[in-house]
């Protein structure tokens, strides 16, 4: 059973059909795609959020996850940032000739499980085959239903609290370790944050906005949010959770966790009066046990880090290139 993807699997003919029926439909079948029409017909009401993302991570399987889980989580978490509840997902596969069929199957299994965990349905998709080195790329697009009002960082004001749901830099350090063949126990944090968001909403936490912390890291995300907020986002280095293994890894390579990408971490800005409640709720959720209040919105303009020795450092977006193909 060493079957591999061949160009014929992307021809649109028999073999494409066999691949879809034999593999994709085996794992992704649901009431929206069962008829295998070219377009899914979906019931929706009110405002929707719509987003897309492409995934090119290398390696495609890494400690803590794989490109399939990443492709679901990336889009799901992007939908959450709008204040919507993720509902439907498309999945487009660009497969490279020579990709082992069992690898593709393991990625489909992972996507199915992650979609189920996130409460999102994979309703449509596409397959292409290109020549290459036996890898794959995935594009996902997602639709979420807005529940109440969409989030708006323009509502952030002085006194609001900044929370982070866990340790920084895990995904980035994991991929970099794999790429550099450095042996350690660092795992990617790739995870969907749907249940955490639902719990915060159910707890009546007044969320002003939320952003997942991917490429560019927390510093870049805070710089971008700051364009919209009234007031400066100030965080304290001492409160930033970073795993010891990731901290040592960063130190050796001269990297800063503040600028490293994650795939299951988000910064939440909430009404200051709800900060403690939000922290408790987050800590009680899966993927939130290390949640912390990391700072607050203060008068001013630019995001600032209070360093561990008490110095003030202005946070600026990542300069130049980070590591390519981490997501």
């Amino acid at each position: 059973m060493n079957e591999k993807i061949r160009m014929a699997h992307g021809s649109g003919g028999d073999q494409t059909s066999a691949l879809i029926r034999g593999l994709f439909m085996k794992y992704f079948r649901n009431e929206w795609n069962a008829a295998m029409n070219d377009a899914a017909v979906l019931p929706l009401s009110g405002q929707i959020a719509f987003t897309t993302d492409s995934f090119v991570v290398d390696p495609i399987i890494f400690p803590g996850g794989d490109i399939g889980r990443l492709a679901v989580c990336g889009t799901v978490n992007d939908l959450l940032t709008s204040g919507s509840l993720p509902r439907y997902l498309s999945a487009s596969f660009i497969l490279e000739e020579g990709l082992p069929m069992d690898v593709l199957e393991s990625i489909c299994v992972s996507m199915q499980a992650t979609a189920k965990e996130a409460g999102i349905e994979i309703v449509t998709g596409d397959t292409k085959v290109v020549s290459g080195r036996g890898g794959l790329f995935i594009n996902t697009a997602g639709i979420g239903e807005i529940d109440g009002e969409p989030f708006d960082f323009g509502q952030v004001q002085v006194g609001d609290a900044i929370l982070l749901n866990g340790t920084l830099g895990d995904h980035h350090a994991c991929i970099l370790s794999q790429r550099m063949e450095i042996e350690n126990d660092i795992c990617s944090d790739v995870a969907p944050l749907v249940s955490m968001m639902k719990a915060l909403k159910a707890g009546n936490v007044r969320i002003r906005g939320m952003r997942d912390i991917t490429r560019g890291g927390l510093a870049t995300v805070l710089s971008e949010i700051s364009e919209q907020t009234h007031g400066a986002l100030q965080i304290r280095e001492k409160t930033l959770p970073v795993k010891d293994s990731v901290a040592s890894f960063c130190k050796v390579l001269g990297l800063e966790p503040l600028y490293m990408g994650n795939e299951g971490k988000a910064v939440f800005i909430v009404d200051g009066a709800d900060a403690e409640k939000a922290k408790k709720i987050m800590q009680s959720c899966t993927y939130g046990e290390n949640a912390e209040i990391i700072g607050e919105c203060v008068p001013g303009k630019h995001p600032v880090l209070i360093t561990s020795v008490g110095g003030k450092r202005r946070l600026v977006p990542l300069q130049g290139e980070g590591l390519p193909r981490i997501c």
């Binding site: 001269g254 800063e256 880090l305 209070i306 360093t307 020795v309 008490g310 110095g311 003030k312 450092r313």
Partner: peptide, 12 residues
């Protein structure tokens, strides 16, 4: 130089 910047030493 980098460590001075990282720690916000100038501000102190």
């Amino acid at each position: 130089t980098a460590a001075i910047m990282q720690n916000g030493i100038h501000s102190l």
